[in-house]
Amino acid sequence: MNLQSTYLISDMTQEVFHCDEEVVLESGESLPEFRISYTTQGHLTPQKDNVVWILHALTGDANVHEWWSGLVGEDKLFDPTKNFIVCANILGSCYGSTQPMSINPKTGKPYYYDFPQLSTRDMAMAFEKLRGHLGIRKIDTIIGGSLGGQVALEWAYNLQEKVKNTVIVASNAKTSPWTIGFNEAQRMAIEADGTWGENHEDAGKKGLEAARAIGMLSYRHHQTFEAFQKDTEEKTDNFKICSYLRYQGQKLSNRFNALSYWTLSKAMDSHDLGRNRGGTAKALSEIKSRVLAIGVDTDLLFTKEESQFIAKNVPKGSYREIKSIYGHDAFLIENEQINYILKSFNLEDNS
């Protein structure tokens, strides 16, 4: 294993970790090698006890100071003058980590549709390799939302006493048929694109636009659309919500690729903490860290009951709730509530 590149962006360091060992994935397939793009902010204490590891959601990246700016930064909850903050791009994502457009070292060509199936367990494994590379013996806090929360929970199960606090936001311990159904509908939209199956980066681009529009209906709540996308004049066509969904689809397709989206949505479907571990409740009962599960009262995709299930079944679990009209996306928007919840959690008994 070796460090491929390093460069500075203000107080942030962005690097690429290269694992040159072949890893066997949960599917039985393997990756001959992989890369993980990651950022760090701040410095480790001599005791190395100030690590905060943040995991991004489906189409996020390692630049956590951009997409969670309300929580990360100087004088904020996760302060790089006090914490050593790590955020790594998830395996399969197209923001610097190994993904379907990466070169397969065995063929010298991009993987494209031959990229192996990933699970959230595989993603946690990749982060564990990175943790070892960084020489981090123990993590103070792991926090992730949505897909990032799923991976965080998997990782916390494996880390045991090596992580003190685990915060799971708007996520679950096992993906529900409801969420899998939304993901399948999005993949069907990608499949319907006539370019799907072609070997180039823009394959499935229009399908991805439609997929994102479907996704947006699950990320938000009907109250959100009623408040911000309701037409004020009487009309029979060209509704405001239609323009909004098309815009969101185009916006994503210009920054993401359909194959990565496909791969990550499949990994989300695979999430089941209890697989081969005696069931979900039993697996949760074996997590050693303090666990804070945060639900959103209007979340249609990862329901608050799923967060409550996590809190109920881990030995050191607690539940808090975000009140919001923004649905699932509230975990990226309601920074003041999250700040308050996390500060209250840190004040609780640490024994």
Rank of each mutant, 00 (worst) to 15 (best):
H222Q: 12
I142F: 02
T195F: 02
V151M: 11
Y113G: 01
A124C: 05
P116W: 02
E209G: 14
R187K: 14
F115Y: 01
S119F: 03
A126F: 08
I142L: 15
K174R: 15
Y112E: 04
N172T: 15
T195Q: 12
A211K: 06
K230H: 13
G132D: 12
G197T: 05
K230Q: 13
Q150S: 06
G144R: 00
A227G: 01
D193R: 07
L118N: 06
A227H: 14
Q117P: 00
G194F: 09
I103S: 02
I139C: 02
P105A: 04
A173R: 14
A211N: 08
Q150A: 15
S102N: 03
D122A: 01
E209N: 12
G132Y: 03
E128Y: 04
R187W: 05
Y112H: 03
T141Q: 03
M123L: 10
L118C: 06
S146N: 00
R131I: 04
E191M: 02
T232K: 11
A213L: 07
A213Y: 09
Y111T: 04
R121H: 10
T175N: 09
A152L: 07
A170L: 08
N199T: 13
D193T: 13
D231Y: 11
M123Y: 03
K162R: 15
A170E: 02
K106V: 04
G181Q: 15
A124H: 06
A170D: 07
R121Q: 12
L159C: 08
R137H: 08
A211S: 14
E201F: 10
T107R: 11
W178T: 14
H133R: 08
S218Y: 06
S146Q: 02
P177Q: 14
A227Y: 09
G135Q: 13
G108F: 06
R131Y: 00
Y157V: 10
P110S: 01
G135F: 00
E191T: 11
E128W: 01
G148T: 09
M101K: 02
I214L: 13
R121G: 07
Q117Y: 01
A227V: 07
T232D: 05
S176I: 07
R212C: 00
R212V: 09
G148I: 04
N165G: 05
N199G: 08
E161Y: 04
I139Q: 09
T179G: 00
M123K: 03
T179V: 13
A192N: 02
Q186W: 09
D231C: 13
R212K: 15
F115N: 01
F182I: 14
V167R: 05
E201N: 10
K106P: 03
E209Y: 04
M123D: 10
L217D: 03
E128R: 14
A210D: 01
E184N: 11
F127R: 13
N183Y: 10
L134S: 04
D202L: 15
A173I: 06
